[in-house]
Design a protein around this nucleic acid. Structure first.
Lengths: 258, 258
DNA sequence: AGGAAGTGCATTGGATACAATAATGGAGCC
DNA sequence: GGCTCCATTATTGTATCCAATGCACTTCCT
């Protein structure tokens, strides 16, 4: 789709990004083994850069690694998800607090305002489709990036950007509803106002709460899936399939890197 | 010293641990390039496991990586350090809060009590030497591990254990004084009491403050070094050397892994 | 028939050879 | 004398080969 690989200089990095997207897209069921040879053939490179990428991904906890056995798509329990978001909540709280302490730069304020306007237009439109949802996700990511950048904490920025909401992206059209998205937007508006007013304590609290509120539906849904799994004896992967009917066509066709 | 490598099954993992210790020990000056061939010869393996280890360490932000150029010991500014500890503070706060929510297990409570007793004995002894300091560091790490384990948040545990206080260990004998260590111990005692009483809000606040208090002297010291660097035009590495006169003999002699 | 040991295969781990890139030094030119 | 360009060299990036481990299947023994 887009030519984002301009800054990539080595095959290892290119494979790293490709596999990262593959894992995050949720196209691979949890537990799926990642065969080095298969991946290298699929990507048109040797095993060496594939192994480098797998090492990096495993270090980031995006995939599981078992010595002398290999790599596999990570399996998340509902408890795992809860933990991930609990951590993220306090980190976003910190980001908001530090953003309120630092205050917006003129450019940052303009950018955030622009993002909010676009989001408002999208949400108030009343219609909700896969395209709109994807567009909203983009704006949402851009918004949080802008806030986190305002905080001026490089370390925090790195951690937040490196721990994306995992494979859950596959659930996005079921997770995000117009209702949830509207509430999220209200949160965003309030966050910006509080940061502008330099209300440090409130900024942190709102940042935290925003994550809890937004992710609770997802955790609940995941817990339901776990329950179903135990009742039916089916794998989560099977239960997940019916939800993964979104267009994966756009992601196909990038078998080769060069 | 100890036989900790029992769980290591591949050379790559062994090299990873060895290089990790090397980096964290602070024996290498910031900016020092990590030559793959040199490292492989020094460790008695080929470049392959060395590269795997370097990839992992760079992913963990313990070293810098520049494509087609190589890896180097990371350089921390005082601001970087501050950011690292700001993040750690909120994470330790979360750990304490969740520990207070969960409460101690009988074994956990016994273990924490034991650690506190030993620390109290060490601190109240009144004497302070490199050996005592090292012993205290062990107890300190064990204490925080015990607390973090009580929180029952695997994700949090992983992040905290993977972002150790960087190469600063080299400064430990100058950073930790009997005064600071005593105050830290008082914090620990209070933390345990608050967790036992299930005072959730206080637990979080104390966990945060504990990190801020403990690390502030280090950040100040680092900032002084930066100032000296600008005045004298000398590199931080040079200014750091006089402080690194601790016994490095114990770390020598592990040139070969097997 | 059930279990345990052994054999063969698939896959990962490690070493080495080769290619590509960047840094360094010197020589030539302005 | 200084600057630029080119060539050489050192180092990283990639591919391939070999070794070692683990797993599954078979087979044999009880």
């Amino acid at each position: 789709m887009t030519k984002v690989n301009a800054h990539v200089t080595t095959r290892g990095q290119a494979v790293h990004e490709a596999l990262r997207d593959l894992v995050l897209s949720g196209q691979l069921a949890p537990g799926t083994r990642l065969n080095e040879i298969e991946l290298s053939q699929r990507l048109g490179v040797s095993r060496t850069p594939v192994r480098a990428a797998l090492t990096a991904l495993a270090t980031q906890d995006l995939i599981d690694y078992t010595p002398n056995s290999g790599y596999a798509i990570r399996t998340y329990s509902a408890r795992d998800l809860e933990n991930v978001f609990e951590v993220r909540a306090v980190l976003e709280g910190l980001a908001n607090r530090q953003a309120a302490e630092a205050g917006f730069s003129p450019e940052g304020e303009a950018r955030v305002g622009d993002i909010l306007d676009r989001t408002a237009a999208l949400v108030s439109g009343g219609e909700w489709s896969a395209q709109v949802c994807d567009r909203w996700i983009e704006l949402n990511i851009a918004f949080h990036q802008a806030i986190n950048r305002t905080a001026g904490n490089q370390r925090l920025l790195t951690i937040l950007e490196r721990s994306p909401l995992p494979f859950i992206y596959a659930l996005r059209y079921h997770w995000f509803t117009l209702d949830i998205v509207s509430k999220a937007h209200d949160d965003h508006v309030e966050m910006v106002a509080v940061i502008k007013n330099r209300q440090i304590g409130r900024a942190e609290a709102i940042g935290r709460e925003h994550i809890y509120r937004t992710t609770k539906p997802l955790i609940d849904k995941w817990r339901d899936l776990e329950r179903l799994q135990q009742q039916d004896g089916r794998q989560i992967a099977d239960l997940l399939q019916p939800l993964c009917t979104t267009d994966q066509s756009s992601d196909a066709g990038r078998d080769c890197l060069v």
